[in-house]
């Protein structure tokens, strides 16, 4: 099972993680992949890096085999933290992949890095040339999505915009 960016109220995160675990048990899912962005203001010139974290030693070798650096320092909160906390007590392992991304602007380059890592780990082929060719257009399209989200949130004054939209 692959989960990516679940933007809802963090107070629901634990219930969500427990529900995901129940679903995995019912459907005999053997591994969870959690793919997300890690905001990074000072990215290196050679592009964003990806970092990995596993809940069970059995997945450690997959990080090393695919040259994914281990996430050694930092804080994880919200849905990701809830999923890690719930699953580490079970026999279903979780691998978390964090691609460095811009904290406030759309960053398709980070998505490409994440997709490449996933293709290596899952041993599948995904053609990323189209994304690479349209990277600038995608950035404008994502900007438009942010605009629409802001417009909606401004009508719902009590709702707080996610960080990237502020």
């Amino acid at each position: 099972m692959i989960i990516s960016d679940v933007p809802f109220d963090q107070y629901l995160a634990e219930k969500f993680a427990i529900a995901i675990h129940a679903f995995c048990k019912d459907h005999t899912i053997k591994k969870i992949m959690l793919v997300s962005g890690m905001e990074s203001v000072n990215q290196k010139e050679d592009g964003p890096k990806i970092y990995g974290l596993v809940t069970h030693p059995i997945l450690e070798s997959e990080l090393y085999d695919n040259q994914i650096s281990k996430f050694l320092n930092g804080s994880i909160f919200g849905t990701d933290a809830a999923i890690i906390s719930v699953f580490r007590k079970t026999n279903i392992p979780v691998m978390v992949l964090y691609a460095e991304c811009h904290p406030f602007f759309p960053d398709p380059e980070a998505s490409i890095i994440a997709i490449i890592a996933l293709t290596k780990i899952l041993d599948i082929k995904i053609d990323i040339k189209d994304i690479q060719n349209k990277i600038d257009t995608l950035r404008i399209q994502h900007r438009n999505l942010m605009e629409e989200t802001l417009r909606t949130l401004q009508q719902e004054k009590k709702t707080k915009a996610p960080q990237i939209y502020r």
Binding site: V41, F104, F105, P106, I135, D136, T137, R139, I140, R143, M146, E147, R151
Partner: peptide, 30 residues
């Protein structure tokens, strides 16, 4: 929000404060 008549997009931007300076960033793809 954009100005459709003038064919102008408003870029994303953000401003950060550091000790001795401000850093203003604009996202300008294409």
């Amino acid at each position: 929000f954009d100005d459709m008549e003038q064919r102008i997009l408003s870029p994303l931007s953000y401003l950060r404060e550091f000790n001795n300076y401000w850093m203003l960033e604009f996202d300008l793809p294409l």
